[in-house]
Design a protein around this nucleic acid. Structure first.
Lengths: 186, 186, 186, 186
DNA sequence: GATGAATGAGCTTTCATTCAT
DNA sequence: AATGAATGAAAGCTCATTCAT
């Protein structure tokens, strides 16, 4: 009757932590907070993750993989990004806030873009394909990458701040168009 | 002998805090850290700022004003942004990291864009002017604003992460062009 | 298939604990450490010893018996002591370090010399024999006992600390002679 | 009116810790225990010692110096040792128990005899003088050193265990004589 | 204004022990 | 007998904040 495997339990913890970290921030969220929400004891938490930092690192990996799996086209990316922002907002939130701002805890084995690479790989493929097919003009990869990540991240942020007068979906068209304009061959 | 006014002392503290917060993160930086760097006692710090959170709020205000004063045109914005990233990196860093990720401490009196408004105001004027003159196509303000902020912020981040193969300046042209393409009337 | 009796299993645990306690210290060594080394589960450990303290008490008993069995003459004692220090260093180590320094855990039923008595008994017999035969001068027992235990223990300690320039055996002669000089009838 | 200097406060802490460590053991004694006994807050304790281990290291130094100052002759040594055992028992207790058995915490900068050197130096001088004057036979230093330390330590231990039927002083004569016999030229 | 010793709540982490399986 | 996930009290330590001087 041991229905819940150790792996599933880990996932539950990750999921919960994701939610709390993005809601309250990394430092504000305590291990007792997480344990309580998951419904386990503080001590038991440490049977799954040896420290708070280790948890944070696994979290980043988890998100990156989740992101990288389905990115193909601009609109798809935008849609997916915003869907995620609606359905699993803590994922993007987490990425923007916790990772970017607490890079200090990702020192070992997660330097820079290392942990985000699956997502980046997909991105690169997208640009290569686009340029190869002649649809996108052959510009520097990072100029383009920054455009994507920053733009989308910024919109989600504005949304989260309740500054946008319309729902996120409402902007998909114009954003995709802007990105397309920015990148397409003239 | 009291040559240093209370206001100047505050500015020194803000400046130092800015540097430390962006270097080490908001929660990692302690009040003793700041006091030591400034060269004053911990107790005295509290004569200038009643709490760490209050300090953080005044910081945001400080940056916003600094940013808002000189924005007029795209290229100018990009240049200024990157110059700042070079000369006073802690300002942008701070904005990206500390503010975006520790919004929890800005609860009172600094909700949303309130504290950032001077910068935003300038931004709006820029768009209005552009649209009025017919040079920019009349799109939603936030679609455009997110593009700017996210894009530039993302590039600085990539630069800070030492991921960019070239110096920031190197990208100014293509970025400005991308933004211009994205926003200009077709 | 139950080839290993409960008693043998206990001995294995005691032996392992002895090694770990003397290597790392009583408080540093955890029950999981011991269980792992023995190759059993933490839970099962408690089928053999009801607590960590109980284990410690049985350990002392175990060592005392082991020591007491072969003491007859000075040189023999010294040799045996040093042999043990070479072959089963954890025994002496344990005696010196864990027992002497963690007496707090031996409160009940192991006060003072009670648990060490087998060894002491042998010691007493040795002195009695010596005095009776006229070879040793009739001095207070404890003056003599302290000499033995302290001296040998001290040497093993110095050896363990790698302070002695020569191997332990090298000192056997002079130590035996010193002890003999100290105790013999003049 | 600031009558108590920071240095005096440190000494108070050391003194108190010494007492508690030797009474209850190093691991049993908690920082709150010490702070409470001293009459200060836990947090403030850390203004004086950055960790429990650092405290332990300074303790050893403190004792060694205290010991090393007055050792000249055998009887004097024995007397001093026993006086100390009577008046400041925690010092010797500490040396025997906490240091010998918790060497693991003295890893950095306190390896082996390093921290005990003042005492050892005095000891060496004593032996050299004795040998030079012809009164002591020229034997290996460590054989002799182990004799001293072990013997005296052992007696104090037996005393502390309430095993000795007489007060420590009672044994001074015979012990000194034993040591003298052991070391003197024949 | 300035100092820094003092406070104490609260954090992360550990580990002896239990108990459902 | 055996397992190891679960428990929770308690440890070491940090740091924003206060306050006597």
């Amino acid at each position: 009757m041991a229905r819940i495997s150790k792996e599933e339990r880990k996932t539950t913890i990750i999921s919960t932590a994701l939610k709390l970290f993005s809601e309250k921030g990394f430092y504000i969220t305590t291990i007792p907070d997480i344990a309580k929400q998951v419904g386990m004891s503080v001590g038991n938490f440490y049977n799954y993750f040896t420290s708070k930092d280790v948890l944070a690192k696994e979290l980043i990996l988890y998100i990156s993989e989740y992101l990288g799996k389905s990115i193909r086209e601009i609109y798809e990316i935008v849609s997916m990004y915003f869907n995620m922002a609606n359905e699993r907002p803590e994922m993007i939130e987490y990425f923007l806030r916790v990772y970017l701002s607490n890079r200090e805890v990702f020192g070992d084995g997660c330097e820079g873009m290392l942990c985000v690479s699956p997502f980046v790989t997909e991105m690169m493929m997208f640009f290569n394909d686009g340029v190869e097919s002649g649809e996108l003009h052959n510009q520097d990869f990072f100029s383009a990458f920054g455009l994507f990540m920053g733009y989308l991240g910024g919109m989600v942020f504005l949304f989260g701040e309740k500054i946008l007068p319309e729902p996120l979906e409402w902007y998909k068209e114009s954003i995709s168009q802007n990105i397309y304009n920015a990148l397409k061959t003239r």
